[in-house]
Simulated scan of single mutants.
Amino acid sequence: MTTDEDTTAGTPAAPPTGATGAPGDRGDTGGPRALAWRRRRASAARFWRQYRTHRSGVVGLAALLSFALAALTAPLLVGSDVDAVTDAPGSPLERPSAAFPFGTDRFGRDLLGLVVWGARVSLLVGLLAAVLSVAIGTLIGVTAGHFGGWYATVAMRVTDWFLVMPTLVLAIALATVMSRSLVTVVVAIGVTTWPTTARLVRAQTLAVETRPYIERARALGGGHRHVMARHVLPNVMPLVLAQTTLIISAAILAEATLAFLGLGDPTVVSWGGLLQDAREAGAVSAGHWWYLVPPGIAIAVVALAFTLCGRAVESVLNPRLGVPR
């Protein structure tokens, strides 16, 4: 009597659905790496479907993309010599016209070109300072929440000290004692704005540490690095992402403030530097409004756009917040 097992003997098994057929192929749909990438793509698609329901977040994202595109294509849009003083194309302090839509500065340079080029520095400094700030805050928050004890006590007391100290005063002090460069501005902003992130991340880490899978990971021999890197950090990353988008706007405003006070890099064009030039030229008292309005509006719009994006991201990652759409 022939069994089903006998009839199938010697017949090669059919490959799984979607397999490429190549042995050991990492890109087949049945591999763990491909499965992980499918889950990431599905998560990203789900995030975008929820994000685009927030009209304010979409408006903010569109504004940021417009500024980023203008900054990246600045040499094509306005040329690469807009900051040249000796060969300025116009007369000093010309009003807006067809030739100069934003007018000219005190040297006769086209303000439209200066604003476009200033987007590069302001956005770059804001992004780098926010990344530095969030990195410091995340490191301190995760380690303090995981280890606890005397280390958490010391870390939180240092965090509290930074919280009660005026951030702008600390940034001005650092920018004063260090050389005037973009690196100085990034460091001055980054090392003074991390305490809020540290406290939020520590609170989230303490909540994650109480979950059962953390105990199972430790029971199976997982060390501190494994628990923090594979279990704690992925669960606090949504909070870190939302906090990053919110800090970028504050970093851009801080960069503009430092440049306005004359503590930025004088060799580069930034929105805060343009405001500082306008102040030195007496634009406020002389009524040269076109010298102040374009960089001021650019700073306000970018800061508002990052805030709108941050609120939308925070609402998607934590729907319980009930952020208005």
Rank of each mutant, 00 (worst) to 15 (best):
M1V: 14
M1F: 08
D4Q: 13
D6H: 11
A9T: 15
A13P: 04
P16Y: 10
T17I: 08
G18F: 08
G21Q: 08
G24N: 12
R26E: 15
D28G: 12
G30A: 14
G31A: 15
A36L: 15
W37T: 07
R38N: 12
R39Y: 09
R39D: 13
S43R: 15
S43H: 13
S43N: 14
A44N: 11
R49M: 09
R49T: 13
S56C: 08
V59N: 03
L61V: 03
A63G: 01
L64R: 02
L64P: 01
L65R: 02
S66D: 00
A68E: 06
A70T: 10
A71Y: 07
L72N: 07
S80T: 11
D81V: 05
D81K: 14
V82H: 10
A84R: 15
T86A: 15
D87K: 11
P89S: 11
P89R: 10
G90C: 07
S91C: 03
S97F: 03
A98V: 13
A98E: 11
A99F: 03
A99N: 09
F100P: 04
G103A: 04
F107S: 09
R109M: 10
V115L: 05
W117V: 12
R120L: 04
L123Y: 10
L127I: 15
L128C: 10
A129G: 07
V134W: 00
I136Q: 02
G148Q: 13
Y151D: 09
V154I: 15
T159R: 05
L163N: 12
L163F: 14
L163W: 11
T167G: 14
A171W: 03
A171D: 07
T176E: 10
S179C: 04
V183K: 08
V183L: 13
V186K: 06
V187H: 02
A188Y: 07
G190M: 04
T193M: 06
T193A: 11
W194I: 05
T196R: 14
A198E: 05
L200I: 12
T205R: 04
T210F: 01
I214G: 04
G221F: 04
H226I: 06
A229R: 14
A229T: 13
H231R: 03
N235F: 00
V236T: 03
L239C: 00
V240G: 02
V240L: 00
Q243F: 00
T245K: 03
I247F: 00
A250P: 00
A251N: 09
A254H: 08
E255S: 07
E255Y: 07
T257D: 03
T257S: 15
A259H: 01
L261R: 02
L261W: 02
G264C: 09
G264V: 09
V269K: 05
W271A: 06
G273Y: 06
L274T: 10
D277C: 01
R279W: 14
E280D: 14
A281C: 06
G282M: 05
S285N: 06
S285W: 11
S285E: 13
Y291E: 06
P294I: 04
P295I: 01
I297W: 00
V302W: 01
A303K: 02
A303T: 09
T307K: 07
L308F: 12
C309I: 14
C309Y: 00
G310I: 00
A312L: 06
P319N: 11
P319D: 12
P319Y: 10
